[in-house]
Amino acid sequence: MPSPTEIAPRPPDPRARADRMPQLLLLAYLVALALTAFWPTPVDAGLAPLLETVTRHFPVVTHARVEFAANIALFLPIGVLLPLMMPRTLVLPVALVATVAIESTQALLLDARVPSVLDIIANTTGACLGLLILEAFRARRRRT
């Protein structure tokens, strides 16, 4: 006869839930990234009037600079989340392959999208910055 501990369900381990959180966040991020990257029209088209207004008042804020910064921000989560699941040495190669695949798909399949080498540079830079942010956070935690 089984003992009562073998029959009764065990309560969920909070550590197991915490261990899954990076995977869940990465999954949500990848869905958002795919929607952004493979949307048939430029995702920032609706912001053009606002950007024109800002550029008129602040000429240093150009569309190209905003787009470059947005592409950096777009890949920051890769640099933060992937090292939680794989060796750090693979993060930048994965980010580079992902962004080249995105830009290639845009070039081949999405007529209204404009692929760019600058997007590849910005996306890879974003992953690198995310990795640096994670490492700075980890170093700070070790000191405290």
Rank of each mutant, 00 (worst) to 15 (best):
S3H: 13
P4H: 09
P4F: 09
P4S: 06
T5G: 09
I7N: 07
P9I: 05
R10L: 11
D13V: 09
P14L: 09
A16E: 14
R17E: 10
A18V: 11
R20C: 07
M21F: 14
M21V: 15
P22N: 10
L24N: 05
L25W: 06
L25V: 01
L27F: 15
L27R: 06
A28L: 13
Y29A: 00
L30E: 04
L30S: 09
V31G: 02
A34T: 08
A34L: 02
T36N: 13
T36R: 07
F38Q: 08
F38W: 13
F38S: 06
W39T: 04
P40K: 13
P40I: 10
T41C: 03
P42R: 02
D44Q: 07
A45P: 01
G46C: 10
L47M: 12
A48K: 13
P49E: 08
L50I: 13
T53F: 12
T53K: 14
T55E: 11
R56A: 15
H57Q: 15
H57I: 11
H57A: 15
H57W: 14
V60Y: 04
V61F: 15
R65H: 10
V66R: 01
N71W: 03
A73M: 09
A73N: 04
L76E: 03
G79V: 00
L82N: 03
P83S: 02
L90C: 02
V91C: 05
L92D: 05
P93R: 06
A95C: 06
A95S: 08
A98I: 00
V100L: 15
A101D: 04
E103S: 07
S104W: 09
S104R: 02
T105Y: 10
T105R: 06
L108N: 08
L108F: 14
L109F: 14
L109N: 05
L109A: 15
L109V: 13
L109D: 05
L109K: 09
L110V: 12
D111F: 13
A112F: 10
R113T: 06
S116D: 14
D119W: 07
D119T: 10
I120Q: 05
A122D: 00
N123E: 06
T124R: 04
T124D: 03
T125A: 11
T125C: 07
G126N: 05
A127T: 01
A127G: 08
A127L: 06
A127M: 01
C128G: 13
L129M: 12
L129T: 02
L131P: 00
L132Y: 07
I133T: 10
L134V: 02
A136P: 04
A136K: 04
F137T: 14
A139E: 05
R141S: 06
T144Y: 11
T144I: 12
